[in-house]
Design a protein around this nucleic acid. Structure first.
Lengths: 161, 161
DNA sequence: GTATTAAGGATAGTGATTGTCCTTAGTATA
DNA sequence: TATACTAAGGACAATCACTATCCTTAATAC
């Protein structure tokens, strides 16, 4: 099991969209070029983010995407769930019901114990993703990347917004 | 992204192996029949568990599998990692390096910030899986399943061990 | 009117998961 | 010793999700 690449793309795109000047939009073409990924396919991830209300897009020559909320109000979970969906990573197929010793009349009152444990772990994963906001990521990146690269990237984005 | 079915099978199989009498082995055929899954394919998951040292198998007419340790010393994480591997669910493809504003000479001192956050969430997931042991699962199941079904299942297993 | 954009449908290519079949070697029993 | 049973594992095909590309439609700025 591995998360799809679109998750990574979506996270990096949102990170970059945080650098878009107020009132402006950054088109898919620029986002794809900046990250070196296919524009058409990236578009699918951006559409998912848009539908989830994480980002918002507008049409026309000055169109593109921008964050729908402030970076401090967008969590990693928002982005991951927009692309990946909200369904648990563990799918219970109820194989416990195949138990030959289980009379068919038995009521399965609770959910499967195995599933409960796996879902608890899934919840812990999401809770961790929820605890980091886009603004936190911006701060981390500001500490990692040299200031001149950061400034140049902001210019690059502004020039295309 | 979704965990493979073999994870579910492996967890249920380990749960059932906990009911095998001391010194006995339960063959793949019985495990597959009990859970209603294809014997040949289930065998792959059991082999992975065996290689990871979670269970141990022996050959011959009285052969099969049994737990390699006591249920209190086997965690969900042991089982999940045996089948799924220890690699993180998030794979960083370093798309940050495609940044056109990044001089090629720039040293990437730290790992990607996005990856760090995703890996932290992955660690939280594994930590949660680590906190539940096979003995805990047995207790949960004992509270869910009617005593007569539990006893009948134990008989079923003993008869094939 | 023209160029540009998001949105989304249709369709292949790719790779991981699922499933089956077969061979090999070790073990218990008659 | 012969036989039946088992795990281990290699080879292979089917299925399905992910990746990628192409195309049409509708809205927007100039």
């Amino acid at each position: 099991m591995i998360l799809k690449n679109q998750i990574e793309w979506a996270l990096h795109c949102c990170s970059l969209l945080a650098a878009v000047p107020d009132g402006c939009y950054l088109p898919t073409k620029a986002l794809a070029e900046f990250h070196g990924v296919p524009k058409e396919y990236l578009s699918k991830a951006l559409q998912a983010l848009s539908q989830a209300g994480v980002i918002e897009g507008t049409l026309g020559p000055t169109g593109g995407y921008r964050l729908a909320r402030r970076p401090s109000e967008i969590t990693f979970l928002d982005i991951v769930e927009a692309v990946e969906g909200k369904a648990s990573t563990f799918a219970c197929t109820e194989i416990r019901k195949a138990n030959p010793c289980l009379p068919s009349k038995t009521k399965t009152s609770k959910t499967c114990a195995v599933a409960r444990v796996m879902w608890k772990a899934d919840a812990a994963w999401r809770e961790s993703l929820k605890s980091t906001r886009l603004s936190d990521l911006a701060q981390m990146i500001a500490e990692d990347v040299p200031p001149e690269v950061l400034a140049k990237s902001a210019e690059w984005v502004a020039a295309r917004s």
